[in-house]
Structure formats: C-alpha cells, structure tokens
Amino acid sequence: MSTPGPSSFRPIFLLPLVVFAAVAVYFLFGLQLDSRKLPSALIGLPTPAFALPPLAGAPPAPGVSGTIPGLAAEDFKGQVSLVNVFASWCGPCLVEHPFFMRLAETTPIPIVAINYKDKPENAAAWLRRFGNPYRRIGADEDGRVGIDWGVYGVPETFVVDGQGTIRFKHVGPVTEAAMRDDILPCIENLRNGRDCS
C-alpha cells in the first residue's frame, strides 16, 4: 500500500464533491417543500386571463342540461366558484371525485373544472363512468393554462370569489376534513362578504 504525501492534493478533485454537496442541499430543501402546505403565490390575485374550449363529449352535470361549456376568466364574475383541476390519468382524482359529486347534487355552489393535460376522449369517458359534477369544463390539453394557474400536480382545487380573485388553494385530493374545515367555510365566508378564513 502506498501512501504518498499530502503534497499531491489538487483542488480539481474536489469538484465532484462540491457539485454533489450543492445537489444534496437542493434535495434537502426539496424534501421540505410540502406541496400540500405551500401557499399559492396567486392567492389574492385575479385568475390568469385564459379561455379554454369545452371538453368534447362531456356528459351533463346535475342542474345543467345540454352541452357543458368551456371555461374562461370572465365566467367567475358574479358568484363564488370552486375550481377543480383534474385528469382522467390521475388516481387521486378518483379519490376526491365523490366529494364533488355530492357537493354538486346537494348544494348550489358552482363547481367548474380545468381538465389538465388529458386526452378529451379519455376525460369524457372518465366523467361518463364516474359522473360529472362540473358545470363548466375547460380542456387544457397541453397544460399551458395549468402552468398559469401554478398547477403543481393534479388534483388541485381553488376557491375563486365573485370578482374573479383566487382566494384559496388546496393541493392534492380533497379530503372530508379539508372540505369541512377549509373549503366550505371559505366559500360561506366569501358569500357573506367576509374574508376567506
């Protein structure tokens, strides 16, 4: 075994270690980004300007007969709405889906949707199979509008007030508790002219 002296140290050999250290720091911070608690940078701001075409073949929703229209920024004017970002390829979307169905069947709260990075035929089939709670659906096939909304991963759910301002954001599937403790109180408060929380 040879152990030459320390004189042979060369800084360039530190480079891999330095690069790894930088990557590891990113990983550490990446771990702490709990996306569920991350406040959206868009809260308190108007919704991005957008206009999405309707989802071809979408089945009717409770209280809406005929074809389901698309979704645009102007559609939020006048009443508090719930915006759900979903996709047929997204497993967790199926988990939260019954909550929206129940909400659509039992309350007048308008629920609208952005169908994110999905094939229209898949999305329409998904809605036919599991039910359609959405009064308006914007088909965001390439995900451009989703990026403007700061969509991080599907599903995501927003509360938008009657002036078209985003007031609340929930990342991940909506749970019973989130619906009861956050989303419904927020909608109720906004309807009564108060702040979201």
Partner: peptide, 21 residues
C-alpha cells in the same frame, strides 16, 4: 438523503483526498 450524503459524500471526499495520488 442521509444515506446519500454518507455514501456519495464520503466516497467523493475520499476521492478528493486520495485520487490525486
């Protein structure tokens, strides 16, 4: 991540120290 830091960080430290020899 801690395993990564020990395994990769450790081996690259060893590398920075011993490889020039």
């Amino acid at each position: 991540l801690m395993l990564l830091v020990v395994a990769i960080g450790g081996s690259l430290t060893l590398y920075a120290w011993r490889a020039p020899m």
